[in-house]
């Protein structure tokens, strides 16, 4: 399920000039891996700054404030400001679904919702549209989420989402706590027949 797209887990491997994403690289015998060199941490901070400048991430009014993976990464890496000009794109909030909302302003395009929708739930509702900076997460053929005929309203995408982009309706600032453990429970139960609570 890992795609190596966010580039935040890049590591250095001794003997190779190329940085590789830890999530999609198989460990090999005798491999010497550096995970937190000065250079890697600098790259990570810059990548995070790019993510923050790309969309409208305003923690103070976000449902995931305090429970956000993006926010946690920024805190852990000591990213105290964004050195790039914010692009302030004008983006929509889709509140047409009866249970969930999608705020494109907070989306980091990690694609977790798409993958969980296709490969865990099997509904294939979520997908990408556009390309480059114009990429968006869409439902079905870019319909409002509420009009989707394929969505089973299972909520897996909401709990896979690392930020407040996908949220349960009725939550306010800081109330949206994601539970990825449930998704891992389903996957290990299915694939390994292990029911780990």
């Amino acid at each position: 399920m890992d795609v190596g797209a966010c580039r935040l887990c890049l590591v250095e491997i001794a003997g190779s000039n190329k940085l590789v994403p830890a999530c999609t690289t198989q460990v090999a015998d005798g491999m010497v891996v550096a995970t937190t060199s000065e250079r890697l941490q600098r790259y990570r901070r810059l990548l995070l700054e790019l993510l923050f400048a790309e969309r409208n991430h305003v923690c103070a009014v976000c449902v995931s404030n305090g429970h956000c993976e993006l926010q946690a990464l920024a805190t852990n890496l000591g990213m105290d400001h964004v050195s790039f000009p914010y692009t302030f794109p004008k983006l929509e909030v889709d509140l047409t679904h009866r249970l969930f909302g999608m705020d494109h302003n907070r989306c980091v395009l990690c694609g977790r919702c798409v993958r969980v929708c296709w490969y865990v739930e099997g509904a294939a509702t979520k997908n990408f549209s556009g390309r480059g900076a114009g990429s968006r997460i869409i439902s079905d053929l870019n319909q409002p989420w509420g009009e989707s005929r394929t969505c089973t309203a299972c909520g897996k995408c909401v709990h896979a989402c690392p930020t407040g982009a996908l949220f349960e309706k009725g939550t306010t600032v800081g109330e949206m706590q994601k539970d990825r453990g449930k998704l891992e429970y389903i996957v290990t139960a299915r694939e390994k027949k292990q029911w780990i609570v």
């Binding site: 795609v3 000009p85 556009g130 390309r131 114009g134």
Partner: peptide, 21 residues
């Protein structure tokens, strides 16, 4: 390059935008 970026990885998607700006 900015227009041709597919948007999958962050440095290319957001970095080319900032470089162009």
């Amino acid at each position: 390059c900015r227009d041709e970026s597919c948007g999958k990885c962050v440095p290319c998607r957001a970095g080319t935008v900032q470089m162009h700006d």
